[in-house]
Amino acid sequence: METGSYHDVRYIRLNNTPNHASLHAQLRAMEGAEAALVTASGMAAISTALLSVLSSGDHLLVQNGLYGGTHDFIAGDLPKFGITSTSIDATDPSSWEAHLRPNTRAIYVETMTNPLLQLADYEAVAEFSRRKGLVSLIDNTLATPINFRPIERGFDLSLHSCSKYLNGHSDIVAGAVLGREEWVNRVKHRLDHLGGSLDPHACFLLSRGIKTLALRLRAQSQSALEIARFLEKHPAISRVNYPGLESHPQHAGPGSSSSALVEC
């Protein structure tokens, strides 16, 4: 019997069963990515991607106001691997250069921060990364590929907690890494060693959930805007953080891509 490489063996920990392959193709098509990889959770996707992009002695630029789990990993765990980071205002591209160091290797943002729903100047992040030779990573969980496709905007890696909108049924925990094949392959190599693979049955359930994503997200977005408008007018509510509201400081977006996101 002829075999290709170690990664051709149908071994579940390597995320290469037929269920994995089918789901990877589905995710690639959704976000227009060269490659896709599913993981055991969103944090598995985030932590493994960062540990694949960064090494001891490297420096990372991160958007302020990140999801708590991501912030804790970057601020609390990465320093133990010799990796440092600096928070930046992701809406102010003119301020980023001052935070660069000779060992800066990557920049990390979220499409909408969790939970305050702050935006970033996405096209500026991608352009800055290309110009400075950085790897650009974005957590696209809250927008999903329905509302925003970071790869088309020039990002190297797009990350997801699939447990939320992509699956939509609250019956699995999963994550995903999408983007340039070169970087996704590096993440897969690290993931094979760290063991954060996704169960094949969970792959089937996630594929099922994705089929209704567009319908669900349209209804959820409409409901969220109505709820935000209602709460904004309620006398007991002092402030509502929702980019779809005209009162949100970034409603128009810091860049054209941000405006497109809000209007979806």
Rank of each mutant, 00 (worst) to 15 (best):
S129M: 12
R130M: 12
R131M: 03
K132Y: 13
L134V: 07
L134G: 05
L134I: 13
V135E: 02
L137Q: 04
I138L: 07
I138Y: 06
D139C: 08
N140I: 00
N140C: 04
T141C: 00
L142T: 13
L142Q: 14
L142H: 11
T144P: 09
T144F: 11
P145D: 06
N147D: 11
N147C: 07
F148Y: 15
F148V: 13
P150K: 07
E152D: 12
E152I: 05
E152M: 07
E152T: 04
R153W: 06
R153G: 03
G154F: 06
F155E: 06
F155L: 11
D156A: 01
L157S: 03
L157D: 04
S158Q: 00
S158T: 04
S158G: 08
L159S: 04
H160V: 01
H160G: 02
H160C: 03
H160F: 15
H160Y: 15
S161M: 13
S161Y: 10
C162D: 00
K164H: 14
N167W: 02
G168I: 02
H169K: 10
H169N: 11
H169D: 12
S170Y: 11
D171H: 01
I172V: 07
I172F: 13
V173A: 10
V173Y: 13
V173I: 14
A174D: 00
A174R: 01
G175W: 06
G175A: 10
G175T: 12
V177Q: 03
V177L: 05
L178T: 11
G179F: 00
G179W: 01
R180Y: 04
R180L: 08
E181A: 12
E181T: 06
E181D: 11
W183H: 14
V184L: 08
V184Q: 05
V184T: 08
N185Q: 13
N185K: 15
N185M: 12
R186E: 14
V187P: 07
K188H: 14
L191S: 06
L191Q: 02
L191H: 04
D192Q: 11
H193D: 13
H193W: 13
L194R: 14
L194V: 15
G195F: 14
S197H: 15
S197M: 09
S197V: 02
L198I: 06
L198C: 04
L198P: 09
P200C: 10
P200H: 12
C203G: 06
C203L: 08
F204D: 08
F204A: 01
L205D: 10
S207Y: 00
R208S: 09
R208C: 03
G209T: 01
K211Y: 01
L213N: 00
L213V: 04
L217T: 05
R218A: 15
R218Q: 15
R218F: 09
A219C: 05
A219E: 11
Q220A: 15
Q220G: 03
Q220T: 06
Q222C: 07
S223T: 14
S223C: 11
A224N: 14
L225W: 02
L225F: 07
